[in-house]
Amino acid sequence: MASTPKKTASTDTKLVRELAKILNDTGLTEIEMEKGSLKIRVAKGGGQIVQAMAPSPAQLAPAVSAPARVSQPVAAPTTKADASAHPGAAKSPMVGTVYTRPSPDADAFVKVGDKVKEGDTIVLIEAMKTFNPITATKSGKIEEILVEDAQPVEFGEVLFIIA
């Protein structure tokens, strides 16, 4: 498209001008752009900045760490009563489709008997084209995988057991 900047010194000025216009058009208050060694920051002039489009930008307490893992929902209903009572059972935090492999023609993330360490991806769950890895909450051995590749899962359903 026509306005893509060329990499010459003279067009850097053009780039800054374009970024300034983008600021006006988008309601962003600041653009910081990194390209290789080039770093450009364009911000709306001093004083109070009035947001034109967004009521207020979405900086909600970004860096506070979540205290607990999501894979142990409280009082989740399950049809696999025995498995769910197992201390190493990992339950689905959401409704969706579970995948035991990264893509349809790839090998499974893990198989029964594999040693895993905390944080390893065991399965993926997709809902609304969002892919969420379900990871091992402790190191150990995969004792059982209770789901098939590409099957639907319910909230709280047991996915796998680590012993």
């Binding site: 893509t4 374009e18 979405a58 909600l60």
Partner: peptide, 25 residues
């Protein structure tokens, strides 16, 4: 209108910020 990918992304980033904020609040 500026039709370069960079401009389109700047608008997109601003609008995603808006809708994400609405979802969170």
């Amino acid at each position: 209108v500026m039709t370069g990918a960079q401009t389109v992304l700047a608008i997109l980033a601003a609008r995603f910020t808006h809708w994400r904020h609405m979802l969170l609040t």
